[in-house]
Amino acid sequence: MIDVIRDKVKELLDSGEIKGFLGLVRKNGHIAPHLFQKGDDLGAMSLGDDKVAGDARYPLNKFLINLAKAYPEETFAVLVRGCDDRGLQTLYTWNQLNPKKVVPVGITCPQELADACECLKPFPAVITAGECAQPGTPRSVAAVDALVMSERFSYWMDEFVKCIKCYGCSNVCPMCFCNECTLKCDDLVKGGELPPEIPVFHHTRAMHMVGRCIDCGLCEEACPSNIPLRTLYKKVGSIMEEQFDFTTGAVRGQRSPLNKIDFAEGRK
């Protein structure tokens, strides 16, 4: 699979279609996010697999936003999995990236990763390399939903109380791009208090991820306290799907139903 990606990237770079390819590289014994440019050695390129499939996934779209801001005239290619692709569509919708300046290089996720992520679409719309895996089976949300209300509440409170307020969930999130963050507003979230006010802190983030969360799971992987954040956001996502038939990133230009009020009252 990596050879196909290498050839594709070489072709894009040599033709001058792109200024650089944002992907992953193996260096210093680690897998690192990396910008490949014309003439660079593509031999050390990686797809993020270290010991287990996809265990070195990084928020490449987040880095892409930084590059695009600094070099708005340039076109960049970026390595995308299914979740990253949903992310790109959503970032286009929210005007954070210009689709004319982005060339996605799509890879499929192996079955074990799709299963581990319980991912409903473990491949991007346009696939450069790889075979499509079967969608993962949702389990985590159902397992929590099976608890009676009081136990469910205790379950979440016991998880949230472990929060050390590192903001890693938001820092790593490729979809967190607000200039002003509610969770960093002194009037709403008191500084210097641990744990933060629960469950409000985590529910606030969950609410703000409606129409944003593309279920990449990087937040949960970044959480030093192992709070099952992904389960929380999956639950929010499932409510959106059931109530509004809305899946984040499924259709470019489709905003979350919770934002429809903007159109109704403001812009018509």
Partner: peptide, 25 residues
């Protein structure tokens, strides 16, 4: 993350055996 000589971001190393992709604030 260094762009044009300026440090613009921090991202924890996921393959590090010390912090496994996690950091404190």
């Amino acid at each position: 993350e260094v762009l044009d000589g300026k440090v613009i971001g921090t991202i924890p190393c996921k393959t590090s055996p010390v912090n496994e992709g996690k950091l404190c604030i």
